[in-house]
Design a protein around this nucleic acid. Structure first.
Lengths: 206, 206
DNA sequence: CCATATAAAGAACGATCATTCTTTAAATTG
DNA sequence: CAATTTAAAGAATGATCGTTCTTTATATGG
């Protein structure tokens, strides 16, 4: 009764030897670099400093750890890309910032090229129904976020292209850039494609 | 000396029990549907009607069979997409036909959604240097093909966007569409995105 | 008909994988 | 200082994988 005084409440038994946040970050990076099949549970235990027992206790298995890593990725990486959409400035400025973040995310670290969702989850979804469902949700949420930004800018509802479709195009471009980064394209090349993407999308609203 | 008369020359030993062309088509579809890791050698022997011994004799192993399947895919599937670029009509018409073929290829058969190169090879390249090289070549060739079509249409060389970059954008869109098809998007949705892509790309040349 | 050559069929091998189980260590509670 | 609770460490398990090897079948050449 006197152990949970203040903020130092310690659970009953032997304390964990790993840091949950750091473990998730390390697991995420391992999946990102090696793919779902390519990253073994042994490798995961090594990089997260977790025992197999702890991994299964905390996440239920490899599949659960992967889903947790995806959520961590969405909160720490995708969130930055989505935040660039603002609205912070004009639509042109925000789209420019958006694609700049996309290229940065895809090329910043040569150990983790491309996108954990577009490249890794997208592949794992092929042979796992739970992952397919997760991918669908993530993709739809991403497109909805872009669509909302276009609507906020007063996207002409009478034009040939609805904001929902334009958002689908914008998202497809972002994923194409992620894929190209995975295959070795560098920051310079992709930044030029990103600039062209902004121009092309903006002229769609005329 | 009298066995190779005419076109009926038969090799010396026991004749093959499988058809090379049909085997390649079946192997391609299996890799396309299940991914590189997801398709086992056992599965390959079943669908191609080859014995393990024949598979290793003819293709050297799983890796060689996959590369042969990629080549077969490029010759039979990608070739149709590239052919749509013509030049057959105006740039607008040809781009429209191009993306129509992209969407068709990605959504035609629900057993094989998306693109064998953009989705499957792209993933396998992550853990195999030979596959990475192959992917790079295929991606560059695809972009060069689009770029040549833009140049042929007299793509304004003085505009803000070079044809090489515009081709990179056009290819990124195609790959984004392939990826979205893999995650379950249907023909209708993607066709609308494809139409928007044509509009956006054309307005880039103004 | 016999020697030779090629392919089919499938057993066998070694490696790797995800998962579970057993034992040991380190903490709190009374 | 026991008793209890939780985690770490790692061996054990069963399945699957890509590859190789052995045996059998089917063709041609002389």
């Amino acid at each position: 009764m006197d152990s949970d005084i203040g903020q130092e409440l310690r659970p009953r038994g032997r304390p964990r030897a790993f840091d949950g946040e750091a473990a998730l970050e390390a697991a995420m990076r391992s999946f990102w670099a090696s793919g779902y099949d390519g990253a073994s549970v042994d490798q995961m235990c090594r990089v997260t400093h977790m025992s197999r027992a702890s991994l299964y206790q905390s996440y239920g298995g490899k599949e659960g750890l992967f889903l947790a890593a995806i959520a961590h990725y969405a909160e720490t990486r995708v969130a930055r890309v989505a935040a660039a959409l603002g609205p912070n400035g004009t639509l042109a400025e925000d789209l420019g910032a958006f694609y700049q973040e996309v290229v940065r995310l895809a090329t910043d670290d040569p150990e983790t090229p491309g996108c954990l969702i577009s490249c890794v989850l997208s592949d794992a979804a092929g042979s796992n129904a739970r992952f397919r469902e997760e991918l669908d949700h993530r993709f739809m949420a991403f497109e909805a976020r872009i669509s909302a930004r276009l609507d906020h800018a007063g996207w002409p509802s009478l034009t040939k292209v609805q904001s929902r479709i334009a958002a689908g195009l914008a998202a497809a471009i972002a994923r194409g850039i992620m894929l190209r980064a995975r295959s070795g394209s560098g920051h310079e090349d992709l930044a030029q494609v990103a600039d062209a993407a902004v121009l092309a999308l903006l002229q769609l609203s005329d």
